[in-house]
Amino acid sequence: MNIAYLGLGSNQGDRLQHLQQAIQQINRVAGISISRLSSIYETAPVGYVDQGSFFNMVCEIEVELPADVLLSEMLAIEQRLKRTRTIRFGPRTIDIDILLFDHEQIHTRDLIVPHPRMWERAFVIIPLTELIPDYKPPTPEKTIKELGKRLIQEQQIKKLNQVISAT
């Protein structure tokens, strides 16, 4: 059994509903069990900024699947939830990224874990802080909590009172 962390984000349509649907579909995948969910945060877009704000969260899962199969399953969920890829970092109904997969470092054509840009993004680090504050990645050699303290001062992020069920 592996422990993985997924970053979820939505900025089109009913953002909360898209996150809920993604969680429900993740929970239905054979070999995956959702352990914990972070709070939901509203964040400004990064990269392509001419778009609406995002709702973001992190999901901790227990997974029996290899990382490449997990990626395929998450891409299939994105497709079912009508994710389109027209503009890099552009608007989307749902985005599901594999942030961490146990303590593995994976580098293939299709998957890089830990997610290469997660350390600079408050919308990943702040929700991850709720789940694994003392986790220390190989680089940048600070705990998630320490990274979060810096990022929360640099980037716009607002915790919402919305709650999503893991079922």
Rank of each mutant, 00 (worst) to 15 (best):
V49Q: 14
I40H: 02
A67K: 01
L128M: 15
Q156Y: 13
F101D: 12
S53P: 09
Y48S: 09
N11C: 10
K159Q: 15
W119R: 12
Q24T: 10
I34W: 05
N11F: 05
Q79T: 15
V58A: 06
E78H: 03
K145P: 04
E78K: 01
I40K: 04
M57E: 07
Q162V: 02
N2D: 06
T43H: 06
I98K: 00
K159L: 14
L16W: 06
Q153F: 08
E78I: 05
N161A: 10
Q153G: 11
D50P: 03
P140H: 11
L81K: 03
M1P: 12
Q51M: 11
A22D: 00
G148V: 07
G9Y: 03
D110Q: 15
E146H: 10
N161Y: 06
E154A: 15
L111R: 11
T139W: 10
I96M: 13
E78V: 04
I96G: 09
M118S: 01
S35L: 12
C59I: 13
M118Q: 05
L8S: 02
R85Q: 10
T108L: 11
Q24N: 14
K82Q: 13
E146L: 08
Q25S: 01
P45A: 10
L16F: 14
Q17H: 04
K136F: 04
L70H: 01
A76V: 05
D134V: 07
D102G: 02
E120C: 07
N56E: 09
E60A: 15
E62F: 03
I87L: 13
T129E: 10
I23A: 00
E146A: 15
P91V: 02
G7Y: 07
A44M: 09
I26F: 05
G13K: 07
V29C: 12
L19D: 04
G13V: 06
P140K: 09
P114M: 10
D110W: 09
D68R: 03
A166Q: 11
R80V: 06
A122F: 00
N2H: 13
G9R: 02
I106T: 04
I157F: 02
I34V: 14
P133K: 02
L131G: 07
A30I: 08
I32H: 10
E60N: 06
M74P: 00
E42S: 15
A44R: 11
G31C: 11
T93A: 01
A30C: 08
L147W: 00
S165H: 02
V49I: 15
V58S: 01
